[in-house]
């Protein structure tokens, strides 16, 4: 597996993590009422979208690089 393939896997894992953190933030905001948790949750969802966009850009930029 090349660095390109590992990076794609890494970005995918980060997206799952960001989504999970988004849900955690919203849930913690509901339980504790802390605005900080709400900001973290919304920020994490936004990060998930940014990572997705970056992932597509990365794949286009390195389309000639091998996955092996």
């Amino acid at each position: 597996m090349s660095l390109k393939a590992f990076h794609v896997f890494f970005v995918a894992v980060c997206m799952v993590f960001a989504m999970g953190m988004g849900f955690w933030g919203i849930r913690d905001f509901r339980e504790s009422g802390m605005n900080q948790s709400l900001y973290l949750g919304v920020g994490a969802f936004a990060a998930c979208v940014v990572l997705g966009v970056y992932g597509v850009w990365f794949l286009k930029k390195l389309r000639h690089f091998s996955y092996v």
Binding site: S2, L3, F6, H7, F10, V13, C14, F17, G20, M21, W24
Partner: peptide
């Protein structure tokens, strides 16, 4: 490339550590 593979692994470990320990 080898350094990058190692570095990605180290970052991936943190991606698992963070939710497990903090959240």
């Amino acid at each position: 490339e080898c350094t990058g593979l190692y570095w990605h692994f180290v970052d991936l470990v943190w991606i698992f550590l963070f939710p497990v320990l903090y959240l």
